[in-house]
């Protein structure tokens, strides 16, 4: 008893699969080894579908342009921003961020000499492959200076309630 669904299925059989084979078509035998190989450049993975303009990915922070106004901390719904009083800058925890982009909206930024308009200290990149084993890995904490300097005596884990 042929139904409409059956014809649909036959039609789809003749089309190319819709699935996006990212990062690889089939699950590799050993995932960690595959990742290692990709890192070393011995293997290539399929590219993800390009994201549109205005995509909200990992936050980029330019401490040069930060005036320390703390507005981003005020609006951040997820409390992903932390104030570093010593340098009067902020530290951003990517794992807590929910990518709403409010901080980018409010950030006033700074006008460097020779510029006509201020440029925001915060902006959203298109980076979205953020998985990591450690939620405090270097990749997931955006900091004003190199990690050692601003860490001081503060352990990030103890700051987080």
């Amino acid at each position: 008893m042929p139904t409409k669904a059956m014809f649909l299925m036959i039609r789809q059989l003749l089309q190319r699969p819709f699935t996006n084979p990212f990062p690889v078509k089939y699950a590799p035998k050993n995932v960690t080894k595959t990742i290692e190989k990709v890192k070393l450049g011995q293997m290539s993975i399929n590219n993800p579908i390009p994201v549109p303009d205005g995509f909200r990915g990992k936050l980029k922070y330019d401490p040069e342009r930060c005036i320390g106004c703390r507005l981003c901390i005020t609006v951040c719904p997820a409390n992903a921003m932390e104030w570093i009083p010593e340098v009067r800058k902020i530290r951003h925890y990517v794992t807590r961020c929910m990518f709403c982009g409010l901080c980018v909206d409010v950030c006033p930024g700074k006008k460097l000499p020779g510029e006509t308009a201020p440029v925001k200290a915060l902006s959203m990149s298109k980076e979205f492959l953020l998985a990591d084993y450690d939620k405090y890995s270097d990749n997931l904490i955006v900091e004003p200076t190199s990690k050692e300097q601003s860490l001081n005596n503060q352990e990030p884990s103890s700051d987080q309630k």
């Binding site: 649909l8 789809q12 819709f18 994201v51 549109p52 303009d53 205005g54 995509f55 909200r56 929910m98 990518f99 709403c100 982009g101 409010l102």
Partner: peptide, 25 residues
């Protein structure tokens, strides 16, 4: 699978307009 394949289109449009597929902010 078929309906969710169709759904991709509107998610793409939403992503283009708002920046993300879900949680449009």
């Amino acid at each position: 699978f078929w309906t969710w394949k169709l759904r991709e289109k509107v998610l793409d449009v939403l992503e283009a307009i708002t920046g993300n597929r879900i949680n449009y902010a």
